Every structure is written in structure tokens, then in C-alpha cells.
Simulated scan of single mutants.
Amino acid sequence: MNYPEIKVIRAFQYYTVLARDGVLPVEAVREYQADDDIRGLLEKFSNAVDCVIINTSEAMYLVPRTKLSPFHVSNDWIKRRYLRTAATNTDIYLLYFATIVLFGSFFDRYNSEEQTIQFLRLDDWVKHINERVNFLQSHEEEDLIAYEKEFSYNWRAIIDKWEDMDDIKETAKKQTGNTISRLSFVDTVKRFLISQQLIRELGNEEITITEKAKIIVQRFFMEAEYNKGIFEFIYGFKGDEA
């Protein structure tokens, strides 16, 4: 398909900002929705780098579709920016696990595609992770080993890392990433998710998910093609129940 030169230039200008910042303002969303040429070109550009474009009522985002995308956030980058110097892949596994549990809390544990609560307290987030870790612990060792091969997820390492964290200061009103405790780890995950524009703080140790997060969950996390059955396993769903 041939596009007018002015449309190609306009779309490429939008794409360069998306590639640099990962986000465009609402004005770009309106043009994207109203102009078939701009929309078609932006989708071609994003597909070329294995990304998708996500629109909310307030902004447009460029989101990597797979880890093969040059815009994918690597494990090493997360370690350097958000975790302790001595962080290992197990810390990354636990960060991903905590994120899955967070989204599950907002979407009624994946029984619903609509957000079912408006906010979540950090201490409740910790409690929800405790519940899911306890569920993992309910499996026999041999079964967990089999599930690790099936999902390429180190469930036993997640259990051990969470169990090793200090519980003494869990009731403290203020926790920071300098304290190795469950609440402080959740605080670290919170900072990472805020940087990715997936959650925002409401104050009083409460957080909520963004429109960007909601759309990502609905379009990708709910699809078996992308989640590979991990969510059904974590929440103990079976077959049609999921």
C-alpha cells in the first residue's frame, strides 16, 4: 500500500517519540484513531520491532510483544536499577511472581476481565503473596519439579526466597528497599511497576493499576497464548474454571 509522504513522515515522527519515551500524549491517540494511514503505518513500525501499540483514553504506549523485541526490559537491567547489588535470577523470579499476584488481586484472580477492586494496600499485597506461596508449598516436591519444567519457572526458588525474608519488621509503617523484608521487597517491586507506568500510588500505602496495565492484562495476561497457563496454576484453576 502506498502512503502519502506527509503521512509517512508524520507517523515516523510519532514512532521515534514512542521508541524514545515509550508513550505519546492524547493528541496522538486521537490522530491514530481518526487517520487510517497514520494508524496503519504506526502498526507496521511497531510490528517490525516486535511491539504492539496500546491506547488508553489519555495516552499511547509502545509495549514489547516478546523478549525478542529490542525494547524488552532485560533481567540484568532490572537487577541494576531496582534490586540489590547481589541480586540473582531468583530475585527476578520473585519480582515477576509478585507482579502476577498483584494483577490477580485487581482482577479477581483472573476470573474476570474487569477490574474488581479500586486499590490495594501494600500489606495486603504481601498477604496475597503469602497465600500463593503457601499454595505452591502445598504441592509435593516431585510435582513442583515437574511444574518447573512445564512452565520454565523455578517455583521452589520462589518459595525459598520468600520464606528467607525477614518477617520481624513486617508491621512497620514505613519500609524501604534497604530493609530485607517481605514488605520492603514489595516496595521495590512497586517502584519498578511505577517506572513502567503500570501502577500509581494513592497515598496511605495504597496503590492502583493504570489504564495501561488494565489493557495489557486484558489483551495479553488473560490469553493462554501468552500466559502459558501460569496464572491458572498459581491460582489453582482447572480447565473450564480458568
Rank of each mutant, 00 (worst) to 15 (best):
I234P: 03
R20W: 15
V49S: 02
F71C: 02
Y61H: 01
E131R: 07
I129P: 02
L120I: 02
E148N: 01
N130V: 12
N75M: 07
Q118C: 14
A34G: 07
E5T: 11
R80P: 08
A213E: 01
D187G: 08
L83H: 02
M60I: 05
A86G: 12
F97N: 02
V23E: 07
R132G: 03
R39H: 10
L83G: 02
N154L: 10
T66R: 05
D166S: 03
V29H: 00
L94I: 09
E225Y: 06
E163R: 08
E31V: 10
M60V: 04
L202Y: 03
R81Q: 11
T176L: 04
V186M: 07
K190Q: 11
A87R: 01
I78D: 03
I194M: 09
T56R: 00
Q137Y: 05
D50R: 00
Y3V: 07
E241C: 10
N47R: 13
D35I: 03
E205H: 08
R30C: 13
F192K: 02
F107P: 05
Q218F: 00
F106W: 02
L95A: 05
I129R: 05
E27C: 04
D167M: 11
F231Y: 08
E113P: 15
R10Y: 12
L120K: 05
D160V: 11
R191Q: 12
F119G: 10
T208N: 01
Y110I: 04
D35S: 05
A146M: 09
K44L: 14
F12M: 14
F237G: 11
P64R: 02
T171F: 10
D21I: 09
V17K: 08
Q218L: 04
Y82S: 04
C51P: 05
K7Y: 07
L183Q: 13
R109F: 10
Q33L: 14
I54V: 09
D160E: 14
I159G: 00
T85R: 13
L62P: 07
A19D: 04
V101G: 03
T208D: 06
A48H: 08
N111T: 15
K149I: 15
V52G: 14
D91S: 01
H128R: 13
E114L: 13
I100L: 12
K169I: 15
K214G: 13
I215R: 00
S184G: 10
L18I: 02
I168K: 15
R182W: 02
K238N: 15
Y153R: 06
A11C: 08
S105H: 05
D123T: 11
D36C: 11
N55C: 12
C51A: 03
Y96N: 15
T188H: 01
V101K: 01
E205M: 06
G22E: 03
R84E: 10
R30T: 13
E131N: 10
H139S: 10
K238V: 14
L83P: 00
E232K: 08
Y3K: 07
V63E: 06
S57I: 14
I216N: 04
